[in-house]
């Protein structure tokens, strides 16, 4: 359990700037999710904190201790790798035991067995414990990889897209499990994902990375309701926020170049005429694909709507976000 602090951290691989002056505090006991597309610097951040790579610039501290020069073992971090990185010649049980059998820990065998059994149960891999690590499906390997981190009680958990290759149901189960493990143990957890549902449901804080820069850091709700840019606004929300030319509707501030409309920021029944192109019935909600003067707009409506393709719906913005030409939010 510890606070992780990054100050002005930078890292380049050859000519590519992977991280650019990132400053971030991961509070003790928080669940921080890093969001961003491939190449944004999420994995690099984890590797720098783990000590697998060394930063070119800046300071990283774990539990108020500067970790420069410390090995991953000394930093006491547990990492879940995106490519699983299981020990292929060992069984699932041996893989899970591996971190506990470290001579530093001197865990008694009964304790190891109990811990491994417990974690295997949570991850639903008990029946696979005696399989070889290579005789597993991708999802099972990923769970073993998570298990290898969970058997320990490290200062920080670092997880790199740990649920990416699981099926939808298992992913939903494990989201709940991971969140409750973290909440109950008070562990500090740094989590990398593409999946905004994971970010919204598990995170206490979300960090948005864009080309190596941390563009916004805050609670999921804060991020959703107060995005600093088009980029940050596009990370969260399902369906995605609609980004349209500001001039499409009246009343935009002077500098505004774009207007951002989440479904709840679109008021139906008054304003401009738009054409219904497609109606997607998802059960609990219905999505409307609209066309307003050749600009596509996706919004949500009543689940039992009678609207059909070809109908006309009047819409108007309600407390929208305005962005300037560079994509920055105009308050």
């Amino acid at each position: 359990m510890a606070e992780v602090k990054l100050e002005q951290v930078g890292k380049s691989f050859g000519a590519t700037r992977a991280l650019d002056s990132v400053t971030m505090t991961v509070p003790d006991g928080s669940f921080v999710v890093l969001l961003g597309p491939t190449g944004a610097g999420k994995t690099t951040t984890l590797r720098l904190i783990a000590g697998l790579d060394l930063p070119d610039a800046g300071r990283i501290s774990i539990a108020a201790q500067d970790v420069a020069g410390l090995s991953p073992a000394q930093r006491d971090v547990a990492m879940v790798f995106q490519q699983y990185s299981l020990y292929p010649h060992l069984s699932v049980r041996q893989n899970l035991e591996f971190p506990l059998k470290s001579p530093i820990l001197r865990t008694p065998p009964a304790e190891i067995a109990r811990k491994v059994g417990e974690v295997a149960e949570i991850l639903q891999i008990t029946h696979k414990l005696d399989n070889k690590a290579t005789a597993l499906s991708g999802g099972e390997m990923q769970r073993v990889s998570i298990g290898r981190a969970l058997v320990r009680n490290p200062a920080v958990y670092l997880m790199d897209e740990p649920l990416s290759s699981l099926d939808a149901k298992l992913r939903a189960d494990l989201r709940v499990e991971l969140k409750s493990i973290q909440a109950n143990s008070g562990a500090t957890l740094l989590y990398v994902t593409h999946d905004q549902i994971e970010a919204m449901t598990m995170a206490t804080h979300v960090g948005v990375l864009d080309q190596g820069r941390l563009v916004q850091f805050g609670t999921p709700r804060d991020l959703y309701e107060n995005p600093v840019s088009v980029y940050a606004a596009s990370r969260l929300g399902q369906p995605r926020i609609n980004i349209l030319p500001a001039a499409l509707f009246g009343g935009a501030p002077d500098r505004a170049a774009q207007i951002g409309l989440r479904p709840e920021q679109i008021r139906q029944g008054e304003g401009e005429n738009s054409l219904v192109e497609r109606v997607e019935r998802l059960g609990d909600q219905t999505r409307l694909h609209l066309n307003l003067r050749d600009h596509p707009i996706v919004t949500v409506t009543n689940a039992h709507t009678d609207l059909r393709p070809g109908d006309i719906v009047k819409i108007r913005p309600q407390n929208p976000f305005y962005f300037d030409a560079t994509g920055a939010r105009i308050p």
Partner: peptide
């Protein structure tokens, strides 16, 4: 793969243990 050594490194296996177990 190098990532296996990285995992072992995070699992706090010494170089000696990595040599004999991996």
């Amino acid at each position: 793969p190098n990532s296996i050594y990285e995992a072992a490194e995070c699992d706090r296996a010494s170089k000696w243990r990595q040599f004999w177990t991996i």
